[in-house]
Simulated scan of single mutants.
Amino acid sequence: MELLSVIVPCYNEEENVFDFYDELMKNATFFEERKLQVEILYIDDGSKDKTVEKVKELIEKDKRVHLISFSRNFGKEAAIYAGLLKSKGDYAVMMDADLQDPPSLLPDMFLHIDNGYDSVATRRVTRKGEPLIRSWFAGMFYKIMNRISRTEIVDGARDYRLMTRQVVDAILAMTEYNRFTKGIFGWVGFETKWLEYENVERRKGETKWSFWKLFLYSIDGITAFSTVPLAIASIMGVLFCLFAFLFIIVIIVRKMMFGDPTSGWPSLVCIISLVSGVQLFCLGIVGQYLSKTYMEVKRRPIYLVKEEI
Score class of each variant (00 low, 15 high):
residue 218 S to Y: 12
residue 245 F to N: 03
residue 219 I to R: 07
residue 298 K to A: 04
residue 19 D to L: 12
residue 198 E to D: 15
residue 31 F to H: 10
residue 38 V to G: 03
residue 70 F to L: 13
residue 267 S to M: 12
residue 33 E to I: 11
residue 203 R to I: 09
residue 55 V to L: 12
residue 217 Y to W: 15
residue 104 S to P: 02
residue 117 Y to V: 02
residue 181 T to S: 13
residue 170 A to H: 05
residue 51 T to P: 01
residue 133 I to N: 13
residue 207 T to Q: 00
residue 105 L to F: 10
residue 37 Q to P: 00
residue 233 A to D: 04
residue 105 L to E: 06
residue 224 A to K: 13
residue 260 D to R: 08
residue 48 K to Y: 06
residue 246 L to C: 09
residue 183 G to T: 07
residue 16 N to I: 03
residue 174 M to S: 09
residue 126 T to M: 05
residue 264 G to K: 05
residue 236 M to R: 04
residue 250 V to G: 02
residue 290 L to A: 15
residue 262 T to F: 11
residue 44 D to W: 05
residue 272 I to N: 10
residue 71 S to T: 15
residue 119 S to W: 00
residue 304 L to R: 15
residue 271 I to D: 04
residue 33 E to T: 14
residue 300 R to F: 07
residue 244 A to T: 12
residue 258 F to E: 15
residue 44 D to I: 06
residue 232 I to A: 14
residue 214 L to C: 11
residue 283 L to D: 07
residue 3 L to I: 11
residue 147 R to L: 15
residue 146 N to I: 10
residue 160 Y to R: 04
residue 74 F to R: 13
residue 214 L to F: 06
residue 27 N to S: 06
residue 272 I to Y: 07
residue 255 K to D: 06
residue 77 E to L: 06
residue 300 R to V: 11
residue 109 M to N: 03
residue 12 N to G: 05
residue 1 M to Y: 10
residue 254 R to A: 05
